[in-house]
């Protein structure tokens, strides 16, 4: 589906990659990314909370079974990697996994479906409708998640090792000699910063690329339907895998923060 004969392919893609934005400069907010993100987060919490309220240790219902499968899967992943005692990591991992999974799943929504729905309901011309519904294809969303994880890494590093221990870890390795401590500090800081950066960029890159390919496919005319299907089927792999990687790396980074050298 092309959104209008008057648009070239390039204009079509650029239009679809633009967010629904209010405000200017740094104070701007992407209403579509953040809106879908919060909406899907609430969907996750509503479903899981409704199960948690009625959770029974007897014979579980079908929804409870499904939720328990997810919870059990996350719990196992956490227990296989993180061996300390921490009441936050497991629910944090669950939130990340399910939420990111839902955010990524927006990639399956056909690229023109939402703009056309909005056009059909409100009558706003298609050219004025900006709707980029995949929140994880917006770097703000992935960096927001990664920043949260980064704050937790710093927090637990200092909490477990103490300020001195944390600084010692940053300066005394990999080189043991005191004259190389500044070099160590630079290296370790880069390592430290690379963690949230890689978390955010990996997720963003995968989903942005996926979205971009969907848009490219949408410009090729009639044959786009089977190609769309193939690309969407491929995302059966990408979407859960990226959610799982984000969760798993969060667990790994936090368990590294808990390790005392």
């Amino acid at each position: 589906m092309s959104s209008g004969a008057e648009l070239t392919s390039q204009e079509y893609i650029v239009h679809h990659l633009a967010n629904l934005k209010v405000g200017e400069g740094f104070m701007a907010v992407h209403l579509d990314s953040l809106g879908w993100s919060i909406f899907l987060g609430l969907v996750f919490l509503t479903i899981f909370r409704s199960v948690a309220k009625k959770a029974t240790s007897g014979v579980p219902g079908k929804l409870q079974c499904a939720v328990e499968m997810v919870v059990g899967f996350v719990d196992e992943s956490v227990k296989s990697t993180f061996h300390g005692k921490n009441a936050l990591i497991a629910p944090l991992s669950l939130t990340i996994f399910v939420w990111v999974l839902l955010l990524n799943s927006m990639d399956w929504v056909p690229v023109d479906l939402l703009p056309h729905l909005i056009h059909w309901v409100s009558g706003i011309p298609l050219g004025d409708i900006y709707m980029k519904p995949v929140p994880t294809a917006d770097p703000n969303i992935t960096f927001g998640l990664a920043l949260g994880v980064f704050i937790l890494i710093i927090y637990y590093s200092i909490k477990v090792k103490g300020m001195g221990g944390f600084m010692k870890e940053l300066t005394t390795q990999p080189f043991g000699h005191w004259s190389l401590y500044p070099v160590n500090f630079i290296l370790e800081t880069v390592t430290m910063l690379a963690r949230p950066l890689s978390l955010a960029l990996r997720l963003f890159g995968n989903l942005y690329a996926g979205e971009l390919i969907f848009l490219l496919i949408a410009t090729i005319g009639l044959f786009q339907l089977p190609v769309h299907f193939l690309w969407a089927a491929f995302h059966l792999l990408v979407i859960p895998l990226q959610a799982f990687i984000f969760m798993m790396l969060t667990i790994v980074y936090l368990s590294l923060a808990h390790e005392d050298h």
Binding site: M27, V29, S33, I38, I141, G144
Partner: peptide, 10 residues
């Protein structure tokens, strides 16, 4: 473009 969306998401 990084903006307040990031803070909102955080």
């Amino acid at each position: 473009d990084i903006n307040m969306t990031l803070i909102g998401q955080l």
